[in-house]
Design a protein around this nucleic acid. Structure first.
Lengths: 142, 142
DNA sequence: ATGGACCCTGTAGTACACTACGGAGTCAAG
DNA sequence: CTTGACTCCGTAGTGTACTACAGGGTCCAT
C-alpha cells in the first residue's frame, strides 16, 4: 500500500470511529468515495481523517448530517455561482451565531450557579432556569 | 380553569411543540408531572413553557435529553451536597466551553469563506476545512 | 343537552445515525 | 503457503427522540 493512502481501518482508527461508520458516511455523501485497489479495497487520502473529525465536531454542536453535508460542500464549483456560496455561508453564519448566543447564555447561567453555591444560598426550584431568565430573554417562536 | 394554570394544549402551543411531545417529556422526566383535575386533565404552572423552551434550545446545541435532564436537575436538594452540584456544574461548564471553542472556530472559518468569495479567490477542494485547519488544531481523540 | 374541540391512556410507527452480522475474498508476516 | 487480521457487500438490528393513531372521556358555548 503506497505511503500516502490509508485503509478504511486506518482512517477509522485515526478518526476514532468504526469502519462501519466510515462506509456509512460514504453512502451518505459525507466522505467522498475513494479510489479502489484491484481487490476492491478502499484507498483513502490522508485528509479523510480530518474530514471525519469535522463531521464529529459539527454533530456535537447540534448539526444534522444533512446540514454537515451542506457545510462540507460549501465551495465554488462549475455549476455554482460565487454569490450562491456566499449566501449559504451567511445563512450558516447566522445559525452559528444563534448557537453561540444560546451557549453563552447557558455558560453564564452555569457559572452563576457554580458561584452561588459557595455556602448559604437559598435552594431554588431550578437555579439554571432562573439564571437564564435573569439573563434577559429574546426568543419568541423556534 | 384557574387563571395561572395551563392545559397541555396551551403549554404545547406556547412552547411550539405538539401535546404528544409534552407528555413524552413528562415520561422522560424533563417536565415534572403536573397536578390533575378530577377528570384527569393536566394543569401546568406557567413556567413549564419556559422549561420546554430550554429543552429545545439545549437540544439545538447538541445536548441529549439525558444531559438536559442533568442540567435541569442541577440544584441543591435534601439528598445532594452543595459540593456535588458545584462539581457537576463545573463539568458542564467545561463541556459548554469546548462547544463554544468549536463554534467559534467554525464561525471564523465560515466568515473567512464568505469573505474570500468576493471575486477571484481560487477554488479549493473544501475551503471550510482549510479554514478550520489554518485556525490551528488541538484535538486528539473524541 | 349537544356538538366540536379538547384531553386521557396505551401502543405502534417514523426518522436519524449508527452498529452488528453473515459469508466471502484479500493481505502480508512468518 | 498458511493463517489471522483485515476488507468487501448487503441486510438487519439498536437507541434516541419523537409522532401518529385508536378508542375512549371531558369541557363549554350555544
Amino acid at each position: 500500500m503506497d505511503s500516502s493512502s490509508l485503509s478504511i481501518g486506518q482512517v477509522a482508527k485515526g478518526a476514532g470511529v468504526g469502519v462501519e461508520t466510515v462506509r456509512f458516511y460514504e453512502r451518505e455523501g459525507l466522505v467522498p468515495a475513494p479510489k479502489r485497489r484491484p481487490s476492491g479495497y478502499r484507498q483513502y487520502p490522508a485528509d479523510t481523517v480530518r474530514r471525519i473529525h469535522f463531521v464529529q465536531a459539527a454533530k456535537e454542536l447540534g448539526f444534522t448530517l444533512r446540514e454537515i453535508r451542506e457545510l462540507l460542500s460549501l465551495r465554488v464549483t462549475a455549476g455554482k455561482k460565487c454569490a450562491d456560496v456566499r449566501k449559504l455561508a451567511h445563512e450558516k453564519l447566522a445559525e452559528v451565531d444563534a448557537k453561540l448566543t444560546e451557549l453563552q447564555r447557558m455558560r453564564a447561567a452555569l457559572a452563576q450557579l457554580a458561584a452561588s453555591c459557595t455556602g448559604k444560598g437559598p435552594t431554588s426550584e431550578c437555579p439554571l432556569l432562573d439564571a437564564l431568565d435573569a439573563q434577559g430573554d429574546a426568543h419568541v417562536h423556534r
